[in-house]
């Protein structure tokens, strides 16, 4: 009985870490993988998702719908920013990272001015379940399920829908895509918006578990950066295996030494990975496949 409990605890902690890494990195990975831009305002899209979710939920809207609202709001914000600022910087990837940092400052500090330094949160739904006499949060397991579904959903979206095919065509050969009648500007906007919406969804999903402050996005940044760097440019071949690998390390170190050591472990891992796999996991997997 003790073994079952230990095994389940290990699985639970791994699943929790995996879900967190996948959900916090997904939006960043879509924008980086598809557009080559590291979006430093990523944390602020997460923050936007969390704020809108909490605000709408407190108005009495059912939580799942409130979360969709949060994600949608972040997506719309992403499209607006893409149309006004980001689209001017596509040929300057190094400048785009700096510009998105400026956007991040504006959004965080602007939220502090408008909404104050914190907002009343909402409680974690779904209660708990117990295995071998120990109780676990049901919601954490739901998040794991959502993360897995999201990975599958994105795979289908990018490989089996017109949007995905047009989007990949735009990214791989913009001139050809244009010649084929694809509105490439619109594809960039939508892809950026999708990344922002995914970031917003991460904020929405974790909103019940964190304190709602304007700087909450920063708590997701390190994990999302590390996952994207380890994963490399391919969203699917990169993010999922990177998150799985990192989740093992993070879960082990967090369980052993606490949250901070988990982050330190991730950072050390990323430096080791960079040293031996300069193209990230996806570069390595793609090489091995052919």
């Amino acid at each position: 009985m003790e073994y079952i409990h230990l095994a389940f605890t290990a699985f639970y902690q791994f699943g929790d870490a995996f879900a967190f890494l996948v959900l916090s990195a997904m939006g960043l990975a879509v924008i980086f993988g598809m557009m080559g831009i590291i979006n430093l305002a990523h944390g602020e899209f997460i923050m936007c998702g969390a704020y809108v979710t909490v605000a709408t939920a407190r108005l009495g809207v059912p939580l799942p719908i409130a979360m969709l609202c949060g994600s949608l709001a972040a997506g719309i914000l992403g499209i607006v920013l893409e149309r006004t600022i980001i689209h001017r910087l596509y040929h300057r990837p190094l400048d785009s990272i700096v510009a998105t940092w400026g956007i991040s400052l504006i959004l965080t500090q602007g939220t502090l001015i408008v909404l104050g330094s914190s907002m009343a949160g909402i409680s974690t739904p779904l209660g708990s379940f117990s295995v071998g006499g120990y109780s676990y949060s049901t919601y954490r397991m739901v998040l794991l399920g959502v993360a897995v579904l999201l990975l599958i959903g994105l795979y289908v979206l990018f490989h089996h829908t017109t949007f995905g095919i047009h989007s990949r065509a735009t990214i791989q050969a913009p001139h050809m895509a244009k010649a084929a009648g694809i509105d490439t500007g619109r594809m960039y906007s939508l892809t950026f918006g999708l990344g922002a919406a995914l970031a917003g969804l991460a904020g929405a999903l974790y909103a019940p578990t964190i304190s709602i402050v304007p700087t909450l996005g920063a708590n997701f940044l390190v994990e999302s950066f590390v996952t994207v760097v380890v994963g490399g440019a391919d969203v699917f071949l990169g993010t999922a295996p990177a998150a799985a690998t990192l989740a093992v390390i993070k879960a082990f170190l967090t369980g052993w030494q606490g949250q901070l050591m988990g982050q330190v472990g991730l950072l050390i891992t990323v430096m080791v990975v960079i040293r031996i796999l300069p193209q990230g996991l996806s570069g390595w997997l793609l090489k091995g496949r052919t």
């Binding site: 590291i38 430093l40 990837p93 190094l94 990272i97 920063a218 940044l221 390190v222 950066f225 590390v226 994207v228 760097v229 901070l260 982050q263 330190v264 950072l267 990323v270 430096m271 960079i274 040293r275 300069p278």
Partner: peptide
């Protein structure tokens, strides 16, 4: 670690920033 690992461009930026954030935390 970074330069001899041939890290450049945006990755250099995010690894140095991540290190800073973890140190601040």
């Amino acid at each position: 670690i970074l330069f001899y690992g041939r890290i450049s461009g945006v990755f250099l930026g995010i690894v140095t920033l991540s290190t800073t954030l973890v140190f601040a935390t």
